[in-house]
Design a protein around this nucleic acid. Sequence first.
RNA 1: GGAGGGUUGGCCGAGCGGUCUAUGGCGACGGUCUUGAAAACCGUUUUCCGGGAAACCGGGACGGGGGUUCGAAUCCCUCACCCUCCGCCA
Length: 407
Amino acid sequence: ALAARESKFDLDGLLALDTKRREMIGRVETLKAERNANSKQVAEAKKKGADASEIIARTKAIGEEIKAIDADLALVEAKIADDVMVIPNIPNADVPVGLPDKNKEVKHWGERKTFPFKAKTHWELGEALDILDFPRATKIAEPHFSVFKRQGARMVRALVSFMLDLHTTKHGYVEIFPPFLVNRDSMRGTGQLPKFEEDMYKLAADDLFLIPTAEVPVTNLHRDEILNESDLPVCYAAYSACFRREAGSYGKDTRGLMRVHQFDKVELVKFAKPEESYAEHEKLLADAESIVRALGIEYRVILLSTIDMGFSAAKCYDIEIWAPSLGRWLETSSVSNFEDFQARRANIRYRDAGGKVKFVHTLNGSGVALARLIATILETYQNEDGTVTIPAALRPYMGGMEKIERK
RNA sequence: GGAGGGUUGGCCGAGCGGUCUAUGGCGACGGUCUUGAAAACCGUUUUCCGGGAAACCGGGACGGGGGUUCGAAUCCCUCACCCUCCGCCA
């Protein structure tokens, strides 16, 4: 599996450490058993008023030895724990092996939008309609932030409500509104740490992180918990702002809303039984697709290859939407099954019908991310006069408005 | 931010150096009884690591970490969190 991801991880080194660990545990536990037996003898001797000084002296020496081995063992275990944290998940057998050119398009929906006039990009439309303001976003924060204004701001709010309503009333998700800052344990639980710390916005004084996705707080809701089998699958839908440093990604394809440091997203998270997780994965994908479909946007679904897929995922689909003026696909959703990868890190388990405790499988998918979706809506629904028709599904959330016009 | 009090099994709650993974109660599950249910009674009810095909054996876990001791839920240090009061505050 590591080879399929072209990982350089030293597996033999880890296995050698594990052998060493077991050997040390065997030795130290034998000594502890002896100490326990001796202590019991001391207690009995004292009860009878007999002299126990010889056993006590002998046991003290055993104690010194235990202390020394335990200290070494702690070092070995810490090293193993560190090493294990940077091993990526094992890809599912369905996942094509190789570079992103092995990605597989598994679905294509919708008609290609064409225009009998010169189509504008979303940033041209947004500026002309006075609903997007990038220069001022840069002034108050820095480049690659955005300001939404008037019907633009209203559309953000409308999309969030539309998506959450659909997922909670039609798809059976429970709505969550999580913290946008989380601690280190949470970031480790879902796999952002320790490997990707530089990609995260961090509040050093408090050792808290701005969430890159609601997946982090929502999955960690059940960290260190044992769920009931009868409650599975647990399905949550959560809106959050998402914060990403996007370090090293400056350059091409970053104009307008294509790649921003802060965006809004409705995230879907599931906790499922292992034997059901792949069926839940397909349902999750369908739930995410239903959003872009309801908005009448051309999209395709890509099954990502082993190397394109994220560190924590066992299998991942991306939903890409067509931005007609840009003439390119924009990723607006990533739908992943993590199997028990996150569950092991975050210690999320369930008790099965036989009373056995097992790791759950966790899944999540964007349902969906807003910035690129808004870019695509503006470009897809633009009219020759520079106005933008509001997709019918969204109108009830925008006061019945049919068009975005310059005021 | 300041002062004081807490943290024990799904929950409540005992425990004050050895017989404590831990009394008791509640809850849950199984059984007896009953046409069925309730009540009553009996029983079962944490988890991690190592070894083992298994039965089972051994080690660990009483908020986290460290210390004292032959031996720690119990004594000491430290950190985190919770509660009460004061201060500040959308």
